[in-house]
Nucleic acid binder design. Structure first.
Lengths: 153, 153
DNA sequence: GTTGAAATCTTAGAGAT
DNA sequence: ATCTCTAAGATTTCAAC
């Protein structure tokens, strides 16, 4: 499934990750290529799904989302039905930015962004109403030290 | 610090989060406005830092980054010097996608994307060479159930 | 917020390496 | 097969209303 990606593709992807609002000319200049090849490659990378989407990253604090929690979830039930219900519950809630199924002791980790501690509690109460959870630990972020969506190329 | 953002701004931001490659005309149509006001608002939201940047989200698997770890870090030292060193170490490493300072028992959480378990071990060895760490727990993601950068508006 | 027009960028085809 | 050149068409940008 790993796409065949050459050096120029990598440089183009790096530039797009850094700033997707750049023009083709700019990207072409920085990657030592020219407009059309860059355009063709971007098009291929999009079609192949290597580029999933174009988006903007927003300042959550400016938007009133001041609290970020990492939620460690242990479940008692490992049935398929429970898992599907948990999945739906997590996907349906816009506060859940990220969710992973884990190997080992802890079953799931969630990253949840909310306005404040009370909003987190509402989220938590609503979640455990939807699905039964054996044990939950919430880790409150005091400070975002680093955040990037740029994967190393 | 919370910016004054009205309903139209929110709708514009929602569209940009969903797909930043849309044209102004398209965004204008979907938000019930027209080109110029949308353009002026986007410009203001960028200047105000509400929109931090335009980027692309890539498929890590297509790029050979198959392993994702959440790393729970406990430190023995809470000196300013140690903290600064840890911060630098974390920021300098491109594998670290995210890092938070936490309240409570666990001091930091990192999200680390690497090619495989061996690459994680190299990362870990290199990190503990740079900064002394009291205790580390690595949680291995088996499956990304959800990932979004779209904050709820 | 609207209109409109200039500058710029994207898109795509035909031919060159 | 991929790149260069070219140009039409679309979009962004901005000034005037």
């Amino acid at each position: 499934m790993t796409a065949e990606i050459d050096d120029l593709d990598r440089r183009i992807l790096a530039e797009l990750q850094r700033d997707a609002s750049q023009s083709l000319d700019e990207i072409a200049r920085k990657t030592g290529s020219s407009k059309t090849p860059v355009w063709n490659r971007i098009r291929k990378l999009r079609a192949a799904g290597v580029i999933r989407n174009y988006t903007v990253l927003l300042d959550e604090y400016a938007l009133g989302l001041e609290a970020c929690f990492f939620v460690l979830v242990r479940t008692s039930s490992h049935e398929a039905g429970w898992q599907a219900a948990f999945l739906d519950a997590v996907r349906a809630r816009p506060e859940v930015m990220e969710a992973h199924r884990l190997a080992g002791d802890i079953d799931y980790i969630l990253k949840v962004k909310v306005a404040n501690a009370r909003a987190y509690d509402r989220f938590y109460q609503s979640l455990i109403e939807d699905v039964s959870i054996f044990n939950v630990t919430a880790l409150l972020s005091m400070e975002e030290i680093k955040f990037t969506t740029e994967v190393p190329l």
